[in-house]
C-alpha cells in the first residue's frame, strides 16, 4: 500500500468522524417526538393536515403495515411513470416507454434503496422519470431506512411502552429536516465543481480523432452473441462523433450519495465527469455515503443516554471497514501477473500509478477507486467510480464480501445501523451461551422471541443470494447473460444476487441482466431482501419497547468496551465467512489461484 493510500484513508476517517458527530446531535432532535417550532415546523404540520396524518405512536405491526403499503405505492408510481414516459413531459430525446420487466425491476430497485440498474440512464429514462420517479424514491427509500432505525433505537430506549413511534412522522421529518437540506447543500457544491444541472437537449460533438473500438455483438433480444468456444463475439466500430448527454444531474447526485442509493444519472455512474467532476467531488461523494450511517451510530448512543454504546458500534464498523479497505488498496496496487509476463512495467512511481489500472478512471487512480469501492459496498450505496468487474480477484472479493456481510459496515442510511444492532443482539446471545447467563443488551433482556426474529434477519439474505445464484447458474436463461465464461462469470452472477438481496445496487458488470429472467429474479430478491429484513427488525423493536430496562450489575456484559467490539466484529465476520466462503471459493478465490499459477 502506498503512503498516499494510507494518508487518504486516515484523512477520510478523520473528516468523517468530525462531521458525523455534530450531525448526530441534529438527527437526535429529529428523532425526538417533541414538536419542532418555526417555519419548518409549520410546514411539517401542514403536510400532516393535508395528508390526514394522525401523529400518535404506532404498534410495530401498524408501523410495518404503513411502511409496506407506502413503499408498494411507490413501486406502482415508479412503474407507471416509466411505462408512460413517452407521453409525459420533459422527454426531449423522445425516449420510448420502458419495457414492463425492466420498469418493474427498476421500480422495486429504487423503492428498496437498492438502485440496481439494468438500463443505461441517458438512453432509457427521460428527465421527468429521472426526477419524479427515481430521485423522489432516492429520498423516500432513504427516509424509510432511517425511520426503521429510529423505531429500533426507541425499542431499546423506551420502558414498558406500547409504541415505537409514528411512521408518517419519521418519514416526513427525515425527508424534510435531514435529507432535503443536506442534499441542497451538497448539490450546490457539486454544481460549483462542474456537475451539470440543466434541461438541455443532448449535444452532438465532433471528436479530435476518430475512435475505433470493439463492441460486443448482441442478438435481437439484447443477449450477447457467443462463438463455438463460448467467447463473446465482437465487432469493430469507428466513429468521429460523440453524443454528450445532459440533464439535471447535480440535484440527483447529492441524494444518490447521501441516501446511499447509488443509482447513476448516467450509465458510467460516478466515473462520469458530469456526475463526479473533480477529486474534491470524489472525496465529498465518499464522505456523503458514510455521513448519515456514521451519525446514526452516535444517535443510537445519544437516544439511549449512553454515548459509549454509539462509539462501540461505530468502532466495530470502523475496524471491519479499515481491514477491508487495506486489503482492497493493497490488492489493486499489485501487478497483474498476466501483464508482467508480457513485460509491462506496473511499478508505482512519480510518472505512473502502477498496479491494476484496468477499468479505473485515470482522473482518480488506484487509491481513490479502491477506497471508493470499499466505501460504496460497505455502505449499501452501489455508486461506482471504477468498474468492480476489472478489479484484481482479491480486490473484487472485497466489495462482494462487504455486501454479503449484510451491509452492516456503516451500511445503508438506517439499514446499516439496524443491521448491526441485530448482529449485536446475536453477539450478546453467543456470549450469554458461553457464560450461561440470560443475554441482555443496553438494559433490555434478549429472549426467545428476539432471537427467533434475529435468526430470520440473519438467514433471509443468504437464502436469497445463494438460492438465487443457484437458480441463475442452473437455468439456460441465467447462463445466457454471462459475457465472461468460467469462474469470473460465476462471480458476476454471485455479485448480482448479493448486490440485489443486500440492497447495494453495484454490479460486476459483464452480465447481461436486463432480461425478463434477471429483471424478475432480481426484483423478487430485492423486495424480500428489504422488507423480509425490516419486518422482523420492527418486531424486535416492538417487543423490546414493551420491556422494562434492567439495571447494570456486576454480572452484566459491558457492551461499550474493546471486548464487546471484538465480539461484535467476530460475530459479523464469522457469520459472513461461514455463509459465503464456499460460494466465494468458486469465484474470486479460484480466479486468484489461477493468476498465481500463471505467475
Amino acid at each position: 500500500m502506498t503512503a498516499q493510500a494510507w494518508l487518504a484513508l486516515l484523512i477520510f476517517l478523520a473528516v468523517l468522524t468530525a462531521l458525523a458527530y455534530p450531525l448526530s446531535i441534529y438527527i437526535s432532535r429529529i428523532a425526538d417526538p417533541l414538536p419542532i417550532g418555526g417555519i419548518a415546523g409549520s410546514i411539517e404540520h401542514a403536510i400532516y393536515r393535508v395528508a390526514g396524518v394522525d401523529s400518535k405512536d404506532m404498534t410495530w405491526t401498524r408501523y410495518a403495515i404503513c411502511l409496506l403499503l407506502f413503499n408498494a405505492l411507490g413501486v406502482v408510481v415508479v412503474y407507471l411513470v416509466q411505462r408512460l414516459q413517452l407521453w409525459l413531459p420533459l422527454n426531449y430525446q423522445h425516449l420510448a416507454n420502458v419495457s414492463g420487466d425492466s420498469a418493474f425491476d427498476t421500480a422495486v430497485s429504487f423503492v428498496t434503496n437498492t438502485n440496481w440498474q439494468g438500463y443505461a440512464g441517458e438512453s432509457t429514462m427521460s428527465y421527468f422519470t429521472q426526477m419524479l420517479a427515481l430521485a423522489v424514491q432516492n429520498f423516500l427509500s432513504a427516509a424509510t431506512g432511517i425511520s426503521v432505525a429510529f423505531a429500533l433505537i426507541r425499542g431499546f430506549a423506551r420502558r414498558s411502552a406500547a409504541g415505537i413511534g409514528n411512521f408518517w412522522v419519521d418519514l416526513t421529518r427525515c425527508t424534510l429536516y435531514l435529507l432535503l437540506p443536506l442534499s441542497l447543500l451538497v448539490a450546490v457544491l457539486f454544481m460549483a465543481q462542474g456537475a451539470i444541472q440543466n434541461f438541455d437537449d443532448y449535444k452532438q460533438v465532433r471528436t479530435l480523432e476518430s475512435l475505433t473500438y470493439a463492441q460486443p455483438k448482441v442478438d435481437a433480444a439484447g443477449m450477447p452473441l457467443k462463438d463455438a468456444k463460448g467467447d463473446p463475439v465482437t465487432e469493430s466500430v469507428t466513429t468521429r462523433t460523440q453524443t454528450l448527454a445532459m440533464g439535471p444531474v447535480a440535484s440527483q447526485e447529492a441524494i444518490k450519495m447521501l441516501g446511499t442509493n447509488g443509482g447513476g444519472f448516467f450509465n458510467a455512474n460516478s466515473a462520469h465527469p458530469y456526475e463526479n467532476p473533480t477529486p474534491l467531488t470524489n472525496f465529498v461523494q465518499m464522505i456523503s455515503m458514510f455521513l448519515i450511517p456514521a451519525a446514526l451510530c452516535f444517535v443510537f448512543g445519544r437516544m439511549l443516554g449512553d454515548t459509549r454504546q454509539g462509539w462501540a458500534v461505530y468502532g466495530a464498523m470502523t475496524v471491519i471497514f479499515v481491514g477491508m479497505a487495506i486489503l482492497a488498496l493493497w490488492a489493486e496496487q499489485q501487478a497483474n501477473p498476466l501483464l508482467v509476463r508480457m513485460g509491462v512495467d506496473q511499478t508505482h512511481g512519480i510518472l505512473q500509478a502502477g498496479g491494476n489500472m484496468e477499468g479505473k478512471e485515470t482522473r482518480f487512480g488506484i487509491t481513490a477507486s479502491a477506497l471508493f469501492a470499499t466505501i460504496t459496498t460497505s455502505a449499501s450505496c452501489g455508486a461506482v467510480n471504477a468498474m468492480h468487474d476489472s478489479f484484481m480477484p482479491l480486490g473484487g472479493l472485497v466489495p462482494m464480501w462487504l455486501i454479503q456481510l449484510g451491509e452492516v459496515v456503516f451500511g445503508g442510511v438506517g439499514s446499516g445501523l439496524y443491521g448491526m444492532l441485530i448482529f449485536a443482539i446475536m453477539a450478546v446471545f453467543v456470549a450469554g451461551l458461553m457464560i450461561g447467563r440470560t443475554p441482555e443488551y443496553v438494559g433490555k433482556k434478549i429472549q426467545s422471541f428476539e432471537i427467533k426474529m434475529t435468526s430470520i434477519v440473519i438467514l433471509v439474505t443468504p437464502l436469497l443470494v445463494l438460492v438465487g445464484t443457484a437458480v441463475a447458474v442452473m437455468t439456460e436463461q441465467g447462463r445466457a447473460g454471462i459475457f465472461n465464461p468460467g469462474s469470473h462469470g460465476f462471480s458476476e452472477i454471485l455479485y448480482a444476487l448479493s448486490s440485489a438481496a443486500n440492497n447495494n445496487g453495484s454490479a460486476f458488470a459483464g452480465l447481461g441482466a436486463n432480461t425478463p429472467f434477471y429483471n424478475m429474479l432480481l426484483a423478487v430478491v430485492m423486495w424480500f431482501g428489504r422488507f423480509a429484513f425490516i419486518v422482523p427488525v420492527l418486531a424486535i423493536a416492538g417487543s423490546l419497547a414493551g420491556k422494562k430496562r434492567i439495571e447494570v450489575t456486576a454480572g452484566t456484559l459491558p457492551t461499550h468496551g474493546p471486548l464487546f467490539i471484538a465480539l461484535l466484529v467476530g460475530t459479523v465476520v464469522l457469520v459472513g465467512a461461514l455463509t459465503y466462503v464456499p460460494a466465494l471459493a468458486l469465484g474470486p478465490v479460484i480466479e486468484h489461484l489461477q493468476l498465481l499459477a500463471i505467475h
Partner: peptide, 30 residues
C-alpha cells in the same frame, strides 16, 4: 399494459403481510 407485474407486486405484498402476521402471532405466543 400487461398485468403480470402488478400481479407479482400484489403477491410480494401479500407474502410480506403474511410475514408480519406470522411474526405477530409468534410474539403473542411468547
Amino acid at each position: 399494459m400487461d398485468l403480470l407485474y402488478p400481479a407479482v407486486l400484489a403477491l410480494l405484498l401479500l407474502a410480506t403481510i403474511a410475514l408480519i402476521k406470522g411474526c405477530a402471532a409468534l410474539e403473542r405466543r411468547k
